[in-house]
Simulated assay, not measured.
Amino acid sequence: MKFSENDIEKFFSGKLSEKEAKEFLTWLHSREGEKVFNSRIDYLWKNQIEGDHVKKGVDQHTANDIQMLNQRGSDRKVNAAPSIYFKIAASFLAIFTISYLLFLNKPIWSNENQIVDISPKEILKSAPKGQKSKLTLPDGSMVFLNAESSIKFMDDFKVNRTIHLSGEAFFEVAEDKDHPFKVITDKLVTTALGTSFNIKAYENSSKIEVSLASGKVKIADVSRDSQIEINPGEGISYQPKLGELELQKVDIQSILNWKEGILQFEKLPLPKVIEILERWYGVDIEIKGSNHSQKIKCTGTFKPNEYLSNVLDVLGHSIEFDYEINGKNITLNFK
């Protein structure tokens, strides 16, 4: 690409694209570029001398020197000026170099030697207490996040389909046989090609549960080099401390009720019910007046997105407690 003196001003004013700026600097160091550059320096130098003499004024000694140079002819000028021109040219070249670094923010080397940060960046998606979230991953897969859950993955996800999960999520995986879909929870790695499955792996829980809705997945305990494949309607329960993969039949519809906003308890200890309610509604619940709350178990199914007060009414009638709601703080008073 050819450049001219006018492109020098374009470069300094930032009117050249990154590609044009790189090509400009390559041209600048060519024989043609040096010729144009030296011509520009010569022009600027002469204008500087004339401008200083006419507009600002110079001391008499300097003025006399300039006049003497003009009277002695071009040969004398050529011999006297080069050292000064070279200094100016060196200054301009330094300015060009600094400008290039500021403009492109990268070294002035050939493409082969450029060091560019192309490392993948981590992406975090989460659903806080009291909320659920649905999102589409870069590969087209769908993820439903339960309350107080999060996933992490890299921005090169289309070729590196690996997710770190904390909490509970349901995955509908887009099929891609060349890039297996992996979900990492603690020491457990669940791998699928094109399927749908649920994983429950809250940090304060003693176990991780994987339930398969469709397709087939492979679940591996990387700490013990053990793995198992499950089919639809099957799941595994895994306790990291014991390192055991327990295969079991599951009611996948019951497990996925949370996706539809349906609360369901089946002979669940009260402390676990309280934990679910706190997460589901984003509240803090305190129990008063019962020394047997640890032994109480609850059963019930509530319609989608039921109000917390209605849930507490039903539970209170069943296991005999009154309750008080003060903003996000709930108190259960057992009789």
Rank of each mutant, 00 (worst) to 15 (best):
residue 303 K to V: 09
residue 187 K to F: 02
residue 28 L to Q: 10
residue 30 S to T: 15
residue 125 K to N: 04
residue 62 T to M: 08
residue 328 K to G: 00
residue 61 H to D: 06
residue 112 E to W: 05
residue 183 V to T: 14
residue 294 Q to L: 02
residue 257 N to H: 12
residue 101 L to P: 02
residue 326 N to I: 08
residue 264 Q to I: 05
residue 122 E to G: 00
residue 16 L to Q: 10
residue 241 K to I: 15
residue 312 L to G: 13
residue 149 S to C: 05
residue 326 N to M: 08
residue 235 G to Q: 13
residue 331 T to Q: 00
residue 212 L to W: 13
residue 37 F to V: 02
residue 265 F to R: 11
residue 14 G to S: 09
residue 248 Q to S: 09
residue 287 I to D: 01
residue 35 K to C: 03
residue 231 N to Q: 13
residue 78 V to E: 11
residue 227 Q to A: 13
residue 35 K to W: 04
residue 270 L to G: 05
residue 311 V to F: 10
residue 282 G to Y: 03
residue 236 I to A: 01
residue 265 F to E: 04
residue 267 K to A: 01
residue 169 A to S: 12
residue 34 E to D: 07
residue 13 S to V: 07
residue 110 S to L: 02
residue 226 S to A: 10
residue 334 F to G: 06
residue 141 S to T: 11
residue 296 I to C: 01
residue 44 L to S: 03
residue 139 D to N: 10
residue 17 S to L: 06
residue 153 F to D: 09
residue 85 Y to W: 01
residue 307 Y to R: 14
residue 39 S to K: 09
residue 31 R to I: 15
residue 264 Q to P: 04
residue 184 I to R: 04
residue 126 S to W: 04
residue 14 G to F: 14
residue 185 T to W: 08
residue 166 S to M: 14
residue 113 N to A: 05
residue 21 A to L: 04
residue 149 S to W: 10
residue 129 K to T: 12
residue 79 N to E: 15
residue 102 L to C: 06
residue 275 E to H: 05
residue 310 N to I: 08
residue 237 S to W: 06
residue 85 Y to R: 14
residue 245 L to E: 04
residue 57 G to K: 12
residue 197 F to L: 04
residue 238 Y to H: 06
residue 209 E to D: 09
residue 103 F to K: 15
residue 250 V to A: 04
residue 122 E to L: 00
residue 298 C to T: 10
residue 155 D to P: 09
residue 132 K to N: 15
residue 161 R to H: 04
residue 151 I to P: 05
residue 133 S to V: 13
residue 19 K to N: 04
residue 121 K to W: 00
residue 102 L to D: 04
residue 311 V to E: 08
residue 19 K to F: 03
residue 84 I to S: 01
residue 258 W to C: 02
residue 134 K to N: 14
residue 104 L to K: 14
residue 189 V to G: 02
residue 269 P to N: 06
residue 237 S to Q: 11
residue 47 N to C: 02
residue 264 Q to H: 13
residue 176 D to R: 12
residue 96 F to C: 03
residue 172 E to P: 01
residue 46 K to W: 00
residue 201 A to R: 11
residue 244 E to L: 11
residue 46 K to H: 03
residue 210 V to L: 07
residue 94 A to M: 11
residue 191 T to P: 01
residue 50 E to A: 15
residue 96 F to R: 14
residue 165 L to K: 05
residue 265 F to V: 08
residue 305 N to S: 05
residue 281 Y to H: 06
residue 291 N to Y: 01
